[in-house]
Structures are given as C-alpha cells and as structure tokens.
Nucleic acid binder design. Sequence first.
DNA 1: TCGAAGAATGAAATATTTGTGCGTGGATGT
DNA 2: ACATCCACGCACAAATATTTCATTCTTCGA
Lengths: 171, 171
Amino acid sequence: MTDTALPTSLDAFDLAILEFLQRDNATPQRLIGEAVNLSAPAVQRRIRRMEDAGVIAANVALVDPAQVGQPLTLVVEVELVSETAELIDAAKRGFAAVPEVQQCYYVTGEADFVLVMLVPTMAAYEALTRRLFFGNNNVKRFRSLVAMDRVKVGLTVPLKDGVAARTPPRR
Amino acid sequence: MTDTALPTSLDAFDLAILEFLQRDNATPQRLIGEAVNLSAPAVQRRIRRMEDAGVIAANVALVDPAQVGQPLTLVVEVELVSETAELIDAAKRGFAAVPEVQQCYYVTGEADFVLVMLVPTMAAYEALTRRLFFGNNNVKRFRSLVAMDRVKVGLTVPLKDGVAARTPPRR
DNA sequence: TCGAAGAATGAAATATTTGTGCGTGGATGT
DNA sequence: ACATCCACGCACAAATATTTCATTCTTCGA
C-alpha cells in the first residue's frame, strides 16, 4: 500500500474533468467530453491516468447518515498523555479502525487529534466514549462538540488555484 | 431544494449494496449481485430507489488534495459574537460558499462552528483568515489546528448498527 | 383453507456506455 | 527540415446498464 504519488501534471482539461467527477462520477464520458471539448475516449484516457496516478483516490457513493440510523455527528478533540511516536501511531491505528470514526486528523495545537464521529444516539456515543477514551489511559482529555447542523459536508477539493502554477503545457 | 427524506426502509440487501457502493461505486451491478445473491436488475432497482429516496446522496470521485495543490488541511473552530438566528444563518451561508471550506458543522459547546479547510500554503490560509474571520466582525475568536496527518478521511457511514431496529421485513 | 392482489424477482432483449486499435496532426528536439 | 513523441478523434468491439415480461412468493381477505 505505497503511495503512488508521483508529481502528476494536470492541465486545464484534467481539472475540468475532475470538476465534473467530484460532483457526479456517473456522468457519461460522452457528456463530459462535450462539455470540455474532447472526445469520449480522450476523457476516458485522462480519467484512467488520474486514477492510476492517485489523483482520483476513489469513486464512492455518499450515504446520508440520518437515513441509515446515524443521525448524530460529533466533532471530538482528543489530547493524549504521552506523545511518543509509538503511542501516537497506536492512537492513529486505533481511531482509524473504528467504523464510527468517519474522519481522524492528527493535528498540532491544543489538541492532538480531531475526530468526526457518527452515532445513532447519545447513549451510543456515551458507550463509545467509554470504550475509546476512558478505556484508553493514554487519553488525557477529550472535548465533544455535537453537530446541530451539518452545514456543508463533502470531500470536494478546490481546483481553481494551486495547480496552475506547476502545470506545464501538455504538448 | 427540499429534503426528500421519507423514512425509507432498508433491508439487509440494501445495506449490503450500500456497503459496496460506499467503497467503490464503479463496481458492476453484476458483481454486486453475485456477492449479495441478487440479479443485476434487482441490484439496479434497489440502487435507483435509494438514490431517489436520498439514502444515496451523491456519487462522486474523491480527489487527493495534495496532488492538486492543496496539501494543507486545517481544522478551525470559530466562535461568534452574537448568536441570533439571522447571524447564525448568515455565517452558515458564508462558510458554505467558500470553496476552501470543505466541511462546516454548526456545533454546540465551546465553539459555534467547526470548519475543515484545504489550502495550498500557510500564506494562503493567512489570507483566507483575514477575509473570513478578521474581516467578519461577528467572529469573536477562532482557533486553528493544522493537520499533520490525515489519518482517516472519508464520508463512509457505518451500516452494521442503527438500522436493523427499524427495518421491517420487505416482503 | 383457499384464492386474489401486490411486490419483487430472474431471464432475456435492448440500449447505452465504456474500452481498444489505428491512423493522423501538431509540438518538441535534434 | 526531419524524425519522434503524444495525444487526439474515429470506428469498432466489449461490457455494462436498462427495460420488458412472465413467474414466484408473500400477504390479506373471504
């Protein structure tokens, strides 16, 4: 599982295609092609390339948590007691393995980890809490923020900036 | 833009299908069918239904931020001065409209909002900060946590629990 | 207990989309 | 100026998705 993250170069076509796929990856290549002025095969080759290069990390369906019995979202900050490399790694692996932990970031600052969690009920969260935090004596402190509104949830990456600079003309 | 969130009922087949689609929605229906013991058309009908019901909110490609020039992830807590309904709503709309804001949660607790942001550089973040927080006099305080490691990033929803209880047998 | 109605299924046929081979044209470099 | 390299578009082939239809299973009522 090594990162095949070579410094891929993306041109305006690639970005335009990504723009589509980030919104709806079921869009037929033909339509994308029409929109960006490219043939379907060209679009297909570019998509393939970006998938191979890891620019496109995955193609997934987004599920509404509320409709599958997980109406509660929490953001949790976790502070550890000891920050040795091994304990940090252990924590990472531990959090990552929990299905309820949708996202986990290892961060600088007042907290060590930020978790985004999904649970059916507060009771379930309380139980999780017990298992994950109280049951781990390397957890010094944690702070729970309950989401009242998932104002914006997605993994869309802004594409307008940041790439242009290091984009050599393709031909 | 109304939520078509009727209390859809999902059976074990639906959940098994979702399990697949959450991992890779390019999986051929035939394969899903084989895996869950259903014909391709049956799988297709169920997917369609879940899309219509909003259980499947979207089908998207996940892009690696680092490879498109957005290597920095930050988690930001924002506290507002005034919390009138209008100002909260204004803040929601404001944050949601910013492309760099990948996620935005309105939360209870010590902060009012938690944002997950993507930027190319710290300089870019500083500029954003100026525009978004210092430039908004309803922002009392904000706290930035820089992600050193995106340990686990996804929008996968746990499906094993929480649904079974309110799942009537389909036939 | 039996029969009718509704729902969902699988198999087959059709439509659509995706994938591949090949020849062409433009840009780069010698 | 010429050769080479890429990426393109076109045409065809393969695979996948979608529709149709007859059947089975379950449920509900007589």
